[in-house]
Amino acid sequence: MNNKEFIAELSKQINLPIGTTAKLVDDTIRILEEHFLHDETVSISSFGTFEVKKKMERISVNPTTGKRYLIPPKLVLGFKQSNVLKEKFNAE
């Protein structure tokens, strides 16, 4: 299911035209981004948790040239499914 299909599905569920739905989705994502930027954890009880985690810097070696690189620290967005979601997909 790509973005288009997703928005179509969503608009069908909330009985709104696709244009408005797309705007709403966009707004939602902006809000989420704002929270991620402030290092806040977004937890949706029936779905899962979005969390920004810091990956420490590390030294990596290019195996072919043998050169060593210092990979800087970075922030990554992680997602962990909630138990409700896990059970839903593993019910059978």
Partner: peptide, 19 residues
Amino acid sequence: MKELVNRPFAHFEPTELND
């Protein structure tokens, strides 16, 4: 989204170590 989240650390770049 990835870039946006990593924005505080975006100025870092992998550097070759003077081995």
